[in-house]
Amino acid sequence: MRPDAQPGHPAVLHLPVMFAQVMEGLRVLENGTYLDGTFGRGGHARGVLRNLGPGGRLLLMDKDPEAIAHAEREFAGDARVAIRRGSFAELAQWDATGAGLDGVLFDLGVSSPQLDVAERGFSFGKDGPLDMRMDPDSGESASQWLARAGEAEIADVLWTYGEERMSRRIARAIVARRAQQPFLRTADLAETIASVMPRDKSGIHPATRSFQAIRIHVNRELADLEAGLDGALARLNAGGRLAVISFHSLEDRIVKRFIARHAKAPPANRRLPETTGFVASLKEIGGAQRAGADELATNPRARSAVLRVAEKLEGAA
């Protein structure tokens, strides 16, 4: 349930994004051990638990203290469940994963509850403090970063993580505006961005890509994804499944390349000496999957979701 939709949309009650495809992809075994690295509000976790027997195990992680509090309220009495607050980038450091995992799920991006609560600072549709941290007790807030970052750094973040073509113009406007007054509210930042941006014919708010970029930077989302994928591969048992839902091209590109790197031998290069034989450690399952028409009709936030599934092979390190 992690849409990268336009912030400010009202909350929608529905199953988590691509629920059926995720359950099919994970192929939950009755006595298996599974890790949900992005618990959110537990939609996928409940699906896994319904398929686990008394000998099964579900490990839950999330950076967000509100998500962890929700998990503890709902699952603390279930002996099959273990809960840890933290980034899935650190999953391999959790002792509970040491015996091996039969499935790992990452549902990337910002969650619906985070978007819908103005106080979290993710939304420009609902004015709130300019925070954007998934873990509000760790690292710099968006406001703090914008107060100290140089114009070139801001432009680079907007371009790299938001693919914002007007990144330099927006960065100049931010630096000029903060010289008069610091950015403390989401609406203030959104208005500053909109003031130097032409309206898109698609109707998308001019600040959409910039808010995405700043959020990704503040939370180190892409670096965490790369570390989490490595940790998942290291901890998966042979036959175990990795399922990742992404919501924008930057995330999906990382997941796609990770699976390809471990599933396919690199192309030969006649200019380089031959290396030792390639041994695949993953097998891609089903290619890129998207939400079906029925789900899109009831949950427009699923429109940008892409699910990729891979299985760890026998003999992989």
Rank of each mutant, 00 (worst) to 15 (best):
S143C: 05
L115D: 06
G287C: 04
E251R: 10
A69C: 13
D294C: 05
R209G: 01
F88E: 07
A69S: 14
Q144H: 12
P136D: 09
G103T: 09
H217C: 07
N299T: 01
P206G: 01
V117H: 15
G47S: 07
G53L: 05
S123Q: 10
L158G: 06
P113M: 07
G25S: 15
R73Q: 10
S249P: 00
L13V: 15
W94P: 05
D36P: 05
G150D: 02
E24D: 12
A67I: 08
G53E: 04
P10Q: 12
D252Q: 10
D127E: 06
A20C: 13
R50A: 08
P129F: 15
A293T: 08
A147E: 09
D156W: 14
A67N: 09
D62R: 05
L13G: 12
G240T: 06
R185K: 12
Y34T: 09
N269D: 13
D116H: 12
K63H: 06
A67K: 08
G239Q: 06
L229S: 00
L52R: 00
G203R: 05
G55H: 13
R177A: 15
V279N: 09
N299I: 01
H248M: 01
P65R: 14
G287A: 03
S111G: 03
A302D: 02
K126Y: 11
E284D: 07
S141E: 10
E226M: 03
L58H: 11
A291N: 04
A243K: 10
I170T: 00
A149I: 04
P10N: 13
R85C: 06
V306H: 00
L158Y: 07
A223M: 04
V17S: 11
K264N: 12
F247P: 03
N237H: 14
D78Y: 01
L307N: 07
F124R: 09
R261V: 00
K256R: 10
V12Q: 14
A45C: 03
K63P: 02
H9Q: 13
D135S: 05
L184Q: 12
P266H: 11
